[in-house]
Design a protein around this nucleic acid. Structure first.
Lengths: 115, 115
DNA sequence: ACGATATACCTCATCTGTCAATGTATATCA
DNA sequence: TGATATACATTGACAGATGAGGTATATCGT
């Protein structure tokens, strides 16, 4: 985990929703996918992950149900709602914008880089 | 201000340091430069800005001194220290990495985008 | 049979950064 | 004289991340 969570604070929800856009999943699996997709560079702390699920469910962005057991204990599966998909779209666009802004704000060079 | 600060939470210090890498400056001016560089899309709230100065100074990343008055009230100028420059280097590298990770984590498409 | 390990979920107290609200003071201009 | 821009500062509230602690099941080697 070479990246501290504070540098992507606020993106936890969107990262989780991105995984759920691909289909229902559960906490442990979502975290494994995040780790795989970042080459092991990032993974959620458990407390971060599960408090995010509570937050997202209470906001109506996801719903949940108990699924069948795997090789470990029981799994709680999550489904992204229509509101969740809309929220994901907004946040994705916002990320594009934020990325552009930070590129501009953290560059020492003179103005006008395209991105 | 179309971008909420929560999406770049944690970058306040680095943004301020970037401005100070160009030379000494003071709060009001730094904020104006941030607004100009983002085409008005982002600016610090005053409380955020001044609490950041306290934090940075206490961490030894900047020093300050009272400068001459401008058209308004007196100005407190800030100087980036050697430790501040080193911190800025680290954070800049970390931003590159975070950008790559978030691009990967927020993309629905299949793997292997270069950036 | 037993212990280690991986799977899987959960909560709470604490810490940190952001910000609304509020306050002070000076210079300019109509 | 009052509005506006410049300029700095503090405080209480809030929200997200996390360390530390907990529960439970399945597998695998010895």
């Amino acid at each position: 985990m070479s990246i501290t969570a504070d540098t992507l604070r606020g993106y936890t929800d969107t990262i989780i929703l991105t995984q759920l856009m691909r289909g229902d999943s559960y906490g442990y699996e979502i975290n494994r996918q995040v780790q795989r997709r970042t080459g092991g560079a990032y993974g959620f702390k458990e407390a971060t992950l599960y408090t995010a699920f509570r937050r997202l469910e209470q906001s109506g962005l996801i719903t949940s149900y108990w699924g069948e057991d795997g090789p470990g204990a029981r799994r709680r599966y999550y489904t992204i709602t229509a509101a969740g998909k809309q929220f994901w779209e907004e946040r994705s666009r916002e990320w594009e914008e934020t990325r552009t802004l930070l590129n501009a704000l953290l560059a020492l060079e003179v103005e006008h880089e395209s991105d």
